[in-house]
Design a protein around this nucleic acid. Structure first.
Lengths: 216, 216
DNA sequence: TTGCGTACCGACTGCTCGGTATGTACACTA
DNA sequence: TAGTGTACATACCGAGCAGTCGGTACGCAA
């Protein structure tokens, strides 16, 4: 890791690249079939590598799964939810926009295969504490990003002052995952559109209007 | 099946009861480990039966899974959501009450193991069309029950006239499943309470008040 | 140019688990 | 009371799959 030097050039004997290829292929297989459904042979087939390479970089299938959470899934959540909200000057509007266009942002694979984060959490959290902790950390980062965005919206007057940011962030996460889950159940991306449209219309009730009446 | 006669008395040689025992044990195992995680040997161990009994009543593991959906999970949804709403004179209030007390209604197993319906849907819908259709049917029954309840609430003046019942029913299902999913991820039943409280407060915004202002 | 560590190959193993095949005891009927 | 179908029990099979292990080729240092 310290000797990055030149490298990269040829596609032979590049440890970092090989590791990344395995990781990415494993992510795709886990997304498709779940952690237990992922077959290491399939991962290797798609990378055109063999057992030796895999077990050189990862001590076990479990360790590979953990690495997928920490290095691939975490990054997706940051890229999709945390950073765009953090960088926005109108975070509530940005949030609503992203929810509304969620089907386009995530693409059909997510609509039919589900959210990679939630899939793994649902499959593994009750079974393996190592997975649970790592996945929970990703959820927490997402939640923190939402809370921060809602607080900023509140302070800037973009959102009702009465809104409970923590609770609202939680219900947003629940609803987003629920919407994706329903679309996956139905195996129809249109279901995702219907569902996120409803969620967006709820989020719009949080927007501070000239004459506003705050609920509980 | 036609010769029900007396039967039931002794615990030996009662085909209907044996089948039901297998079905219920299979449901518990599926709830715990998922369909692929369910081991037929474990199901049989908990029922104190053997392979012969299982394969006499069910042609395959898949058929057993289908039967669990059609005969166990469907019934749970009807009992928990459809019938109480259908029998209520104030369906929106009943709905809010049930969402608010969801953690008590479903108990800790659901909070830590997740919703049996949604678990199976998330695991199997992308992989097996037979499961998908059967699970989708259950979701549809739930959805229809919610739509009916919301429509009745609208007609009786319990709920805003402007609410889109179909869309709202969808987002309620999504949010409920999302809440249970988050609680499962965290492996903490308190998370379910936090989450359903937020959902309930949203649902209360649908209640028609003397001086009401309908949103979009 | 040799020596050695890194990066990877591929055949093999042991176990798990769904499914099968054969056997058997009970219940009802005539 | 024998005969037949029902309702199970039990031993076994074979495929699938994570993980192992002896080998190998590349590349850098001295």
């Amino acid at each position: 890791m310290s000797t990055t030097s030149n490298a990269v050039s040829n596609n032979q004997r590049n440890a970092g690249r090989t590791r990344a290829r395995i990781l990415h292929a494993a992510f795709k297989e886990i997304h498709r079939r779940g952690f237990h459904g992922m077959r290491l042979d399939d991962v290797l087939k798609s990378t055109e590598l063999t057992k030796g390479a895999l077990y050189y970089h990862f001590p076990s299938k479990l360790a590979l799964g953990y690495a997928v959470v920490e290095e691939v899934i975490e990054e997706i959540v940051l890229k999709l939810w945390v950073r765009p909200l953090n960088e926005s000057r109108a975070p509530l509007k940005t949030l609503i926009d992203r929810v509304e266009c969620l089907d386009q942002l995530v693409g059909e694979p997510v609509a039919t295969l589900g959210c990679p984060l939630n899939n793994l959490a649902q499959e593994m959290s009750p079974l393996d504490e190592g997975f649970r902790q790592r996945l929970d950390r990703v959820f927490q980062h997402w939640h923190a990003g939402l809370v921060d965005a809602l607080e900023r919206a509140k302070n800037s007057g973009e959102m009702h002052a009465g809104v409970n940011s923590t609770q609202t962030a939680t219900i947003i996460m629940a609803a987003v995952e629920g919407c994706i889950g329903l679309a996956k159940s139905a195996q129809r991306i249109e279901r995702l559109q219907d569902c996120t449209a409803a969620l967006a219309s709820y989020l719009r009730t949080l927007v501070a209007k000239p004459a506003s009446t705050a609920g509980s």
